[in-house]
Write a protein that binds this DNA or RNA. Sequence first.
DNA 1: TAGATTGTTAATCGATTAACAATC
DNA 2: TAGATTGTTAATCGATTAACAATC
Lengths: 213, 213
Amino acid sequence: MQKGGISSAVIKRLPRYYRYLGELLKMGIVRISSKELSERMNVTASQIRQDLNNFGGFGQQGYGYNVEFLYNEIAKILGLDRTYNIIIIGAGNLGTAITNYTNFNKRGFLITKVFDSDKNLIGKKIGDMVIEDIAHLEDYTKENKVDIAAITVPKEVAMDVANRVVDCGIKAIWNFASVELRLPKSVVVETIHLSDSLMRLSYSIKNKSDRKA
Amino acid sequence: MQKGGISSAVIKRLPRYYRYLGELLKMGIVRISSKELSERMNVTASQIRQDLNNFGGFGQQGYGYNVEFLYNEIAKILGLDRTYNIIIIGAGNLGTAITNYTNFNKRGFLITKVFDSDKNLIGKKIGDMVIEDIAHLEDYTKENKVDIAAITVPKEVAMDVANRVVDCGIKAIWNFASVELRLPKSVVVETIHLSDSLMRLSYSIKNKSDRKA
DNA sequence: TAGATTGTTAATCGATTAACAATC
DNA sequence: TAGATTGTTAATCGATTAACAATC
């Protein structure tokens, strides 16, 4: 199906297409042209067609795209046509927030376990999930398939936790700690950089006037 | 100082430079060349020099860059040479996590008030901060300067909250809800898209092998 | 002074947009 | 069939990298 390397610019746009198509679907819209979609999304029609054609021809000349079909195709491209078992490491507010966020579950991202090292938290519940001692991480991963580890621990310990996670054979990390994790290339890392985001916001506040796309 | 429009690609990199320089500073490193920094950060030296020269000549031929000076200059560029009053709207786990995250305070982002609409939360405390009834938002903003509103409410009500915030005259929004906020151009919005991030991660899991920068 | 490294211009590369022939 | 709109090639634009003269 898809060729060697799709540029990351394209991949960053896919979730947004997916969201918009989901909305159209909910609204009961059956077909849409790249032009119409481009107006809603504020991108060029050309870009939409180019992006999609990296993965195949999903449309039909003279008709446009079938919303439901395209929605499902993008899901497949993004790997949303399966479920993922996620463990959360760090049961603080952020870990709790993610654990409670039901929308991920709906999309097939299943929180299967929450770990922490704090004796005051271990044994407590988040929803109906009991917080597990991080000491049991290795045992747990031996007996349970884990696709993704979300790291929501303080940045001081994030690197250690990440190394442990990798030693357990987990191949994907969703990192919320404000550090650059140096890990083997075989491990996929996606980082949420809250502080970087906040700095970009303060930059934008300062430069409100002379803005660019 | 800086010209018309700095490309957003450059701006996205600035916080990362800032973080690395902060680390160098902590390590007691006084000067660094673009070449050395490029090796640490895994970018090209040329890019570092180009990026910085969008804002001015901060280095010295034959010497490189003074770490502390450059660190402070980037802080100024990013608008980190002042403080920002932030209100949090939505005292759920995510709002609580942000409120408790002391690192923002250190950088001059001061959480001055937390609002919620839930009667069970109003009056409760997050640290030493009392959760305020969202009904008092308008009164509060009349009497207190607010630079940024962080929106950590469910996506169903995020747009309404955003409109209220804008009506209060707040000019910058840090949005954690998974919706595209359509707001006047005079308002700056920075969105943290958790679900988009998770989708990119699942894409990467699927396409681990054929990766590209 | 000689060596190092910047600031900056020029060359290359990649991504976006425009155009249009193919085709539903 | 005529009209619409895709898929795709070509043109443009912007961002990254390379090169080097300026200069500390």
